[in-house]
Design a protein around this nucleic acid. Structure first.
Lengths: 137, 137
DNA sequence: CTGCGACTTGAAGCGCACTTCAAGTCAAGG
DNA sequence: CCTTGACTTGAAGTGCGCTTCAAGTCGCAG
């Protein structure tokens, strides 16, 4: 504590992650404690930023394994990494578009008074607009 | 077939869902076959649209259980449903914002030549901008 | 009418991301 | 020094969304 190092409980409290999640991330190679005080993990404050990145990437739809690979990337992997990230940007483009359209459908649905909501023609049209399967006969 | 009804394989083919997924959705109350031809499920073509809605909602982050509740909603549930949907709209607002910011970070990262990518100051700033934990000392 | 292949069922299995548990260690306050 | 309670570990459990499997049924082409 006085050392400027954090224990797992402090890291958990400051990141909002559960201690068990931190141990899990460690097992998956996403984070490493700086050292140990006896058996107890000690972390440098910098880990908070790294965990912020991880949380953020998770929220953006990256799996823990993907993040692990990303964080473990060596310079010679850069080209592949860049390609992977460009692909992810494209995925995000599509996902964002889809969410935006879904939001419009929901916005309508939230104010629509059509009896069986699901059969409101406006809603149906909006939904079809989000993501249309082979609805045609 | 000649009846205008679809069997499970056709529904699967036209929706892109696996037959096992269709049976799963049925067990969860999301869809019902119109009837049976012997043991075999038969579906009316309208089910395709319903499945489109389901696929779309799944992609937008709804769980199967949420969709089930949504589809089972009775008129007297409308107020609660509307509130729920308004809340979802809000969730989507936030999620979309986050994804947009994440996309910007990734766009930068994909072209950044900083040695350990993770330590690029631009990238770090962008990431902090996406979702900032208590990074301050 | 027969055979086959696509369907049926229930139960078990899987991958992900954790959480929970049992049993044990140990830093630190009184 | 002793207690206490937060930490440690590995293993098992959880919830989601399906998939796979074994065993059985049966519609329909030949």
């Amino acid at each position: 504590m006085g050392s400027g190092l954090l224990d797992i409980a402090e890291v958990a409290a400051r990141t909002g992650l559960a201690p068990s999640a931190l141990r899990y991330y460690e097992k998956e190679g996403l984070v490493e404690p700086t050292g140990r005080n006896g058996l107890r993990r000690t972390y440098r404050p910098e880990v908070l930023e790294r965990l912020g990145l991880i949380t953020c990437a998770r929220a953006a739809g990256f799996t823990v394994r993907e993040i692990s690979r990303f964080l473990a990337a060596r310079p010679e992997d850069n080209e592949r990494m860049r390609a992977g990230m460009a692909a992810k940007v494209h995925d995000l483009d599509e996902k964002i578009d889809q969410l935006v359209r879904m939001r419009e459908s929901l916005r309508h649905a939230a104010t629509c008074t059509h009896e069986p909501l699901v059969e409101c023609p406006d809603f149906r049209r909006a939904v079809r607009n989000v993501y249309a399967p082979e609805t045609a006969a």
